[in-house]
């Protein structure tokens, strides 16, 4: 039972990271109906910016951890958001209205580009970061097995929940959220009614990139080691999470992320660690076969 609880905590922490990335996928898909393949790379770039920011703060001598965390969070979100904005501007905006596959190929090209760009400017080696947040709390103990909730996990869960709340508010209450929901329903009609769709789409990419950067920063803290290749797998997992939860649905993305994280961790803990990715994909296939719109997605009616 204690082992189970421990794995559940680990799974939720991982799932929160997937959920943050998945929001970017699901928002973009909801509005312009394309898979933003390069989103995983934005997450990787966020992780690198966070790593560099931590090291610079260490050089300057900022040692008070909460202050450093906030600074890094802001820096990673800010710079990754610029990457997200540029990505949309360069690779996707010229292709709006093009055949459906064109933006997908452009996105794959951007993904290859960003991955190799980071490899070029930062090197291909693994980048280790000395632990920044240490310690934790003991939750339960039985049969000599201690259930441990580390401070990083607390940080991950708290920040995720906080951002979700902020985000839910943004979507439900602000003008931007309203514009986004309008674009999601009908892009042309929204444009006719005076919604600035270019701006709305740009901001969607900016928000998605900022959230992915938060996920990247957390992964840097959580695992303490990153390289230029982490974006690919995380991107696919997060997209899986978005599909699992029902693409286009924001709570669905988070739910899908949490479920995927928990399944992956349990699979590694109880079965085999080699096949954890296979397990994740199998879940995806099963969900799509039996519930093609995902867990929280709205059923789509086919019209002639």
């Amino acid at each position: 039972m204690t082992y189970f609880l421990q794995q559940l905590i680990n799974g939720l922490s991982l799932g929160a990271i997937y959920g943050l990335i998945a929001i970017g996928y699901t928002m973009v898909y909801g509005i312009i109906g394309m898979i933003n393949f390069a989103h995983g790379e934005i997450y990787m770039i966020g992780a690198f910016i966070a790593l560099i920011a931590f090291m610079l703060l260490g050089l300057i001598g900022v040692t008070w951890v909460p202050f450093a965390l906030v600074l890094v969070l802001v820096a990673a979100m800010f710079f990754a958001a610029i990457y997200g904005w540029t990505l949309e501007r360069v690779a996707y905006r010229p292709l709006r209205g093009a055949p459906r596959l064109a933006p997908l190929i452009s996105a794959i090209g951007m993904s290859i580009f960003l991955q190799n760009y980071v490899q070029l400017v930062q090197g291909a080696r693994l980048k280790p970061l000395a632990p920044v947040v240490t310690g934790g709390v003991k939750i339960a103990e039985a049969d000599g097995f201690v259930v441990h909730l580390s401070n990083i996990q607390i940080f991950i869960l708290v920040v995720t929940v906080g951002l979700m709340a902020l985000f839910a508010y943004l979507i439900a209450r602000t003008a931007l959220g309203r514009a986004q929901r309008a674009c999601q329903q009908d892009l042309t009609m929204a444009a006719l009614l005076g919604v600035n769709i270019d701006r709305t789409i740009s901001l969607t990419f900016v928000i998605g990139a900022a959230l992915a950067a938060v996920a990247g920063m957390m992964v840097t803290l959580y695992y303490g080691v990153i390289d230029f290749y982490i974006g690919f797998l995380a991107g696919i997992k997060a997209f899986t999470a978005a599909v699992l939860g029902g693409i286009g649905s924001l709570p669905g993305a988070v739910l899908g992320g949490l479920i995927l994280g928990v399944i992956e961790v349990f699979w590694s803990a109880y079965f085999s660690i080699e096949y954890k990715d296979v397990a994740a994909y199998s879940i995806l296939v099963l969900v799509l076969i039996f519930r093609p719109t995902g867990l929280l997605g709205k059923p789509e009616t086919e019209k002639v």
Partner: peptide, 21 residues
């Protein structure tokens, strides 16, 4: 050699933007 894949990715984007079909 090291710029190869960077150029490859950029070429994919450029061709798509230039000729979406």
């Amino acid at each position: 050699a090291q710029y190869r894949m960077v150029l490859f990715g950029l070429a994919m984007v450029a061709i798509m933007v230039w000729r979406p079909r």
